[in-house]
Design a binder for these strands. Structure first.
Lengths: 210, 210
DNA sequence: GTCTATATGGAGATAGAC
DNA sequence: GTCTATCTCCATATAGAC
């Protein structure tokens, strides 16, 4: 869930409603395309009140962005704490990650786009959250597995990129894939669901020692 | 190369300079972030002249977008005409596709983003270009290989998605990957270069009949 | 074809009453 | 806290001289 910066007040408070509306609009339209008027409309209030709670569009965006990135990576790292063989970790990771993305299909493309378009807007956020150290866990996991002779791979780095790419890209490229392969929304959803198991099995075929 | 809508005039013409500037700005800032003033400045002319050649921002964008999508998919389909075994086609495709993307690193993320943000702006474009039929070639290629017993795979559809994901995502997710893995620009470039061969070899390990 | 000047509208942000 | 009204700026687009 996306956390909210707020001192534990009523969930139905105005501030909360504004925040929720802002999340929707920013995700749909991006920073440049988002309109304060639309956020106000969806929250059922007016622009003035919006500025009363969040001084500016920039501040509102920054709060939302920090929360969102944080949620995204919290979710990833959970899988790695368990003590399990590489195979099982990979299966659980794929399952958990795709499940997470299914619920927030617009998130990865949004993040990638905003990082590119507004690096200065998000710089502080990225430094605050210790993302690097979190992600390093995945690298360590794979190195560990290699040392334990569980897997065989030319490059742990490339293997990581393979896995992440196969999990995230189909979500990011939804519009393109649907168009090119002539899929309905239902077919597309089914394919994504399948990938929870297809991707780890595909990877394991390649790297498992026999 | 990105084609230009223009009746074969001087390459240094004003219209041409505007178009080139527009390509740069749109790719950098996206449709919403692009400013006509900036395009005019980079072209070394003023806004009025810009509107003289291209009536509106929307029209300018549409022309550029159509050209760009076209170029992107022209390039893909070239590989499939040759009569070669699946293995060799896959290697050539990976090489050609990554080479293409290295020269236009911002392109895939731009396309994916604009398709999502402005579907109505690009609808005509997508219908005009017979993208679907072009991409179907890749599906056919894989089915053909399966029938010829060249490869073994659970699902041709997923295999296609695997390949495309592993090729495109590292380009799309450059900012994220660089940040998370703590890479310099040089290291990142080297990794992308490596993927020209790493990806097809990875895939072949899984699907090659032995 | 190219310019300066300006029209027009929309966006973020604030003032000030209640 | 919440509203209406308004300010200010900036972006697209056009008018009209040269």
């Amino acid at each position: 869930m996306v956390k909210v910066h707020q001192s534990s007040e009523n969930l139905d408070s105005t501030e909360q409603r504004i925040y929720i509306a802002a999340v929707d609009v920013f995700l749909e339209k991006g920073y440049d395309g988002a309109r304060m008027q639309e956020i106000a409309d969806r929250a059922g209030i007016n622009k003035a009140l919006l500025h009363y709670y969040y001084r500016s569009k920039e501040q509102l965006f920054k709060r939302f962005f920090a929360d969102t990135v944080s949620a995204m990576f919290e979710n990833i790292s959970m899988v790695f704490t368990a003590q399990l063989p590489f195979e099982e970790k990979l299966r659980r990771f794929s399952e958990a990650y795709i499940s997470f993305l299914i619920q927030r299909p617009g998130l990865p493309l949004f993040l990638l786009t905003e990082i590119r378009l507004h690096p200065q807007l998000i710089e502080n956020t990225m430094n605050d959250l210790k993302l690097k150290s979190r992600f390093t866990m995945m690298k360590l996991l794979i190195h560990e597995a290699i040392e334990k002779d569980e897997i065989e791979t030319g490059s742990a780095l490339h293997l990581m990129i393979h896995i992440v790419s196969m999990l995230i890209f189909p979500i990011v490229g939804k519009s393109m894939i649907m168009m090119l392969l002539d899929l309905t929304n239902e077919q597309y959803a089914a394919i994504i669901e399948e990938r929870k198991s297809v991707v780890p099995e595909f990877v394991l075929k390649t790297v498992k020692k026999s």
